[in-house]
């Protein structure tokens, strides 16, 4: 069900080539939406589903690389597969640095493109899941009180309750209580889980 939901965007100014890519992608059962120019793509309403973008780099007007920067600026995180008539090394380096998942030079095997698309969509799906989870974790973290957050940070840094109590000038018993509250609010059962979440939220484990 999730497979059907995903979509492949294609931007290519050559109508014949664009149609052929579109058809190829459709032939493996993927949903496709194609655009003549980067501008057209940017101004379109796009479904919020796992997706990737197949982009011809050297188009007149807003070029592929320009679009990549533009997307990053407006916060659209979408794996991009660059397709080009003849790629040179500086261009591909630039593209990959900016987050391209693949850089295909024409002529390429159809399977290469399809593999790249599958991989890109898979990556986007994970990233989306990750983003959703991050939002949830943030929500949980937000529910912690200031003292709890302090204790959280010290716990995931590997300090014992007694050490934390000494550091914060309180009793080991109080720390134990805070710790219980943190485990409950963050919905975890083990310290290991808590450490992973801290990692995902970017909470430094160092003191």
């Amino acid at each position: 069900m999730e497979e059907l939901e995903s979509i492949v965007f294609i931007i290519d100014d050559d109508p014949l080539y664009r149609a052929s890519t579109e058809r190829l992608v459709r032939s493996v059962g993927l949903r496709v939406q194609s655009f003549e120019s980067a501008r057209e793509f940017l101004s379109s309403r796009r479904p919020n589903v796992p997706s990737c973008l197949v982009l011809d780099v050297r188009m007149p007007g807003l070029s592929g690389l320009d679009l990549q920067l533009e997307l990053a600026k407006v916060g659209v995180q979408m794996p991009i597969i660059f397709v080009t008539g003849h790629g040179d090394i500086p261009m591909s380096v630039q593209a990959m640095k900016a987050g391209a998942v693949e850089f295909l030079v024409k002529p390429f095997r159809d399977q290469a493109l399809l593999d790249a698309i599958n991989q890109a969509i898979g990556r986007d799906r994970v990233a989306r899941r990750q983003r959703v989870r991050n939002v949830e974790l943030h929500r949980r973290y937000e529910s912690l009180g200031p003292r709890e957050r302090e204790v959280f940070q010290l716990v995931v840094s590997g300090m014992l309750n007694k050490q934390i109590a000494d550091k914060l000038g309180t009793t080991e018993r109080t720390i134990k209580f805070h710790r219980g509250q943190i485990m409950r609010k963050m919905e975890v059962k083990s310290l290991a889980e808590l450490v992973r979440i801290a990692d995902a939220l970017g909470i430094a484990g160092q003191v």
Binding site: D14, L16, Y17, S20, R23, S27, G85, H86, P107
Partner: peptide, 22 residues
């Protein structure tokens, strides 16, 4: 010139593959 020829050639290949899959 090579690019101009590659474009339709690539389209032909894509279409043929798509046709076979369909």
């Amino acid at each position: 010139i090579a690019h101009e020829i590659n474009q339709p050639l690539g389209a032909i290949a894509n279409n043929a593959q798509a046709g076979l899959r369909f």
